[in-house]
Amino acid sequence: MNDFHWTKLFNPEFYITMELGGVPIGIYMVLFIVFAETGLFAGFFLPGDSLLFLSGIYSRELVETFFYIPSDFSNVTVLALLIASAATLGNVFGYWFGARSGQFLYAKEDSFFFKKKYLYQSQEFFEKHGGKAIIFARFLPIVRTFVPIIAGIVHMEKGRFMFYNVLSSLLWSFVLVFAGHYLYDMFLTEFNIDLKEHIEKIILILIAVTTFPLVMKAIKSRKSNSNTSE
């Protein structure tokens, strides 16, 4: 840890390859971060989509922390299911918090870990898409942190919430984990390119892709506000 720098906290590979006393704990860190993105409302700075994609690349190393699975497909499937479970639990906690005390967030002052504007953006997103917002939000940084809370605040029917919650968690996990795993294999076998040597580029591309919808939404919102003021 002597070469640790705070910027590593934004690098998903840092968590995936983390060790404690020489013992790999990457899988525990991945599951905790996935839960924390919604369960602990820390989604604006913790890596989400890029973490899942890279977890697919490191699926063998991560799952072997628990047990060895000879089948490559079974290995990546188990990893995706574990991540989906953590994502589901995170949303449940977010929903519970919203139902119990989420209203206090609207009166809370902005801080490094909390921006009220994200709450209002997520509320608008939820009102526009309804239950499907829970699915769409899974693939949008920041929004996925607050949408479950909004669902709890408006007391969305629990059975309906759980349906979208489980479905969105499975889609998010399987799409990104499988994409990372099999794209890594394809680039290695077909082009002799080891994606592990290009992690920083992959992270930048994923950040650009996942934040593009939010940037476009912000631009449209500004144009709309300027037109209204005129």
Rank of each mutant, 00 (worst) to 15 (best):
R160E: 12
S111P: 10
A137T: 06
F14G: 02
K158M: 13
V78M: 12
D110N: 15
E127I: 11
Y120P: 11
E13P: 08
L9V: 04
L54C: 08
E200Y: 04
N225K: 14
V143I: 15
L176P: 01
S122P: 09
H5N: 11
Y68G: 01
M29S: 06
F125R: 14
V30W: 05
R100I: 05
L188S: 13
N225W: 10
L40K: 03
F35I: 06
R60K: 15
F136A: 14
S111Y: 08
Q103N: 15
L183G: 03
E230N: 12
Y58T: 07
L119H: 10
I57C: 02
K201M: 12
S50M: 06
T211A: 10
L195E: 04
E37P: 00
T145P: 01
I16P: 04
S169E: 04
G94C: 09
G180N: 12
E37L: 01
S74L: 15
F174P: 13
I135Q: 06
M156P: 01
A80H: 05
F161R: 04
Y184R: 15
E37T: 01
F212I: 09
Q121S: 13
E61H: 07
M216K: 11
W96C: 08
F174Y: 14
V92D: 08
S122M: 08
G48W: 08
P12F: 04
K128L: 13
A208G: 09
F93D: 02
S221Y: 00
D194R: 15
Y28S: 05
T38Q: 11
Y68S: 10
Y58Q: 07
S55H: 01
S224P: 00
Q121A: 14
E157F: 07
P141W: 09
R60Q: 14
L188V: 09
G180W: 06
A80Y: 01
M162K: 09
I199M: 09
I69K: 03
P213N: 03
F146W: 14
H129A: 12
F191I: 04
G90F: 03
K217L: 08
